[in-house]
Design a protein around this nucleic acid. Structure first.
Length: 419
DNA sequence: TCTGGGGTCCTATGCCTT
DNA sequence: TCTGAAGGCATAGGACCC
């Protein structure tokens, strides 16, 4: 049996742990740049604030209803997440950390065990030790555990936050209740297509022919169908596979048309990727650069483009990665476009101890020493003390974070004080 | 004025090699 | 030397997740 543990309104719950005045009040946490709502308390949901609501459009509703608004504080959420995960791993060695607020547990040999009350214990312990409320769904497959979890969240009074699907009757009842668009793995587009052919619930989906699902929704869709039918095909992924790409992408405050300004940003993004690479001891052998205009300004010229640049040898040097990123930008940059967003993604990662050498061209060995020195100075003196000439030398672009809460658990001088 | 960021997997296509 | 089949690889794009 699989259990899916999901933290309720996770980011809001993290803020509430250290600020109990927020309990029973509408609270939202905004995305990076204070762009849109990405976590809402139940009270905020009841006000009709949808997921992804742009903050500027909901300003009035926030004020009118005294909604408590926070910028996202990822260091805090990451730390709270690892506390929750470490409690969960006390209950079983078979755990897959699926995201910052979710984990799958696998229970083997629990056939004669009361899983429901076992999971109640887990729930109570997590709440007692961290202050984070969670919901648990238990079922024979991962996709059904997701469904069960949804039920436990939707009906907290009846389920007490834990729901078990352990019979055909319960499975079918749950699938008939679940809208097709709410099924894990069915996104916006597939939902639209399925509703067009009168597939409205998860149960309807399971009544489709395997061949149709395979043809129209690939093996991914077919796997999902099997899972919903109760045949487990997705197993726990316990060891986290190393990253395959590292991205640094940002939206701009306004829009940018000037090549030099975009170049400065791209160069900074590239260096940020290089730093991330070095911190996990990796190299990359290709760099993807993209730019795009503001998709919401429909009356203006729309342009989006990206390009993959391959380096002759694998590297994590600021200079090389920045150089190729800027080279790529030069190829895709178009004049008279209002750019809103850009980014660099490094791909083809391998370990820096074990990377492919090139017979003819290799990195200047001085780079390695230089990067080591730069990392050392940045660590000691703070980020962005050292810059490449291609970066913006005057000011440092900063993310908008006007409503940031303190880093209660990860910065000594911001630790909570008890009087 | 103001709409996030960071990932994964799968498939189609075209080119190259065996 | 030509040809077709089949597999490997790179690339782009689509779809999904949190």
């Amino acid at each position: 049996m699989f259990a899916l543990i999901d933290c309720n309104n996770f980011y809001v719950s993290c803020e509430r742990v250290f600020n109990p005045k927020l309990n029973n009040k509408p609270v939202v946490v905004l995305s990076n740049n204070d762009g849109c709502a990405i976590s809402r308390s139940n009270e905020a949901k009841a006000l009709g604030i949808p997921m992804g609501a742009p903050a500027f459009k909901y300003e009035k509703i926030f004020q009118k209803n005294n909604v408590q608004v926070f910028s996202s504080n990822f260091p805090l959420y990451g730390d709270m997440s690892s506390r929750v995960m470490s409690i969960l791993s006390k209950f079983t060695p078979n755990i897959e950390i699926y995201s910052i607020d979710e984990a799958f547990l696998k229970f083997e040999g629990f056939e004669n065990y009361d899983l429901e009350s076992h999971c109640q214990k887990i729930k109570n312990m997590v709440f007692k030790w961290t202050g984070i409320p969670i919901s648990i769904g238990i079922a024979p497959t991962k996709a059904l555990a997701k469904v069960a979890n949804r039920i436990s969240k939707k009906f907290p009074n009846q389920t007490k936050g834990v729901y078990l699907i352990n019979s055909k009757e319960k499975r079918i009842k749950a699938l008939k209740w679940l809208n097709i668009g709410d099924v894990w793995g069915i996104g916006f587009r597939h939902a639209k297509r399925l509703i067009n052919i009168r597939i409205n619930t998860a149960y309807d989906f399971t009544s489709l022919e395997d061949s149709w699902v395979r043809k129209n929704m690939s093996v991914v869709g077919l796997r999902l169908k099997k899972e919903l039918e109760g045949k487990s095909v997705l197993d726990l992924e316990e060891v986290r596979s190393p990253k395959k790409a590292i991205a640094t992408t940002r939206s701009f405050e306004g829009t940018i048309t000037d090549y030099e300004k975009i170049k400065e940003r791209i160069s900074t993004f590239a260096i940020c990727c290089a730093e991330k690479l070095r911190s996990q001891n990796s190299n990359c052998n290709s760099i993807y650069v993209f730019v795009r205009s503001n998709k919401f300004q429909k009356n203006k010229t729309q342009y989006r483009n990206g390009i993959l640049m391959t380096t002759p040898f694998s590297t994590n040097s600021n200079m090389i990665i920045s150089k190729y990123a800027v080279k790529g930008l030069k190829k895709i940059f178009k004049k008279d476009v209002n750019y809103k967003k850009a980014g660099t993604i490094v791909m083809g990662l391998d370990s820096s101890n074990n990377h492919q050498l090139n017979l003819f061209k290799n990195e200047d060995p001085k780079h390695k020493c230089l990067m080591k020195t730069i990392d050392f100075i940045q660590k000691k003196e703070g980020q962005s003390k050292i810059k490449l000439a291609s970066q913006d030398l005057r000011k440092r672009w900063k993310m908008k974070q006007e409503k940031l809460s303190p880093n209660y658990t990860c910065k000594v001088d911001e630790i909570i004080k008890v009087k």
